[in-house]
Design a protein around this nucleic acid. Structure first.
Length: 196
DNA sequence: AGAAGGATTCTCT
DNA sequence: GAGAATCCTTCTT
């Protein structure tokens, strides 16, 4: 996608990412669930200002922000808005499109069951990400990129964001989580999502 | 320098 | 539904 695609409010970018494709080498994922994190948002990692870890969030839109969560999980965010805003969109769930073998290897799955990427940690694992991918541009070919194309997503579900109980009530309650309706590729909890 | 806690996932009950 | 795994980041002395 072109750079301008990312240079809007994270709240607008988030639903537009649904149905888009993420590619790293032979692995392609279709984005099915996202969350918006915004300036002056008590749930956003940018709430403490620019730090070494969160620097990409305050950089130009269209770059990756990858961080380690709970000491185990690599979480992929896409930086939104103009430079300095401090906004990003967390990729929470995807459905695998190509590269199933690679995904299974990375996830350590040996079964023939469906590869569920219903959670941000699983997405990071499927893409083989590490914090070294933070700052990586997603609008140019090579490495990790967001592809143009993808079908328009008609039915969208919205709900409050997950795992941010530390935030202020107005941010805990904000409906900044977006998901494609009628798909199993959604993380828990699902019952807090409602039609837009 | 030390301490607290996390945008999660998996296993077991 | 509850608890462990696991380590880095950031805030506080």
């Amino acid at each position: 996608m072109p750079l301008e695609f990312f240079q809007i409010d994270a709240l607008d970018l988030a639903p537009r990412l649904l149905g888009k494709f993420l590619r790293r080498d032979n692995v392609v994922l279709r984005i099915t669930e996202v969350e918006a994190y915004r300036p002056n948002d008590s749930a956003c990692h940018g709430r403490f200002g620019v730090t070494p870890r969160t620097a990409p969030v305050f950089g130009p839109g269209g770059h990756a922000y990858v961080y380690l969560c709970y000491g185990l999980h690599m979480m992929l965010n896409i930086v939104a808005d103009k430079e300095g805003a401090g906004a990003a969109v967390l990729i929470r769930s995807c459905s695998p499109v190509t590269g199933l073998d690679t995904i299974q290897e990375r996830r350590g799955q040996k079964t023939d069951k469906p590869i569920l990427l219903n959670g941000p940690g699983k997405v990071g694992q499927a893409l083989g990400l590490s914090t070294e991918w933070s700052h990586h541009p997603l609008f140019s070919p090579g490495g990790l990129e967001l592809l143009d194309g993808g079908e328009y997503v008609e039915k969208v579900m919205v709900g409050p964001r997950v795992g941010i109980d530390y935030a202020l009530p107005q941010h805990v309650n904000a409906l900044w989580r977006f998901a494609i309706a009628d798909t199993p590729w959604i993380s828990a909890p699902k019952n807090t999502l409602k039609p837009l």
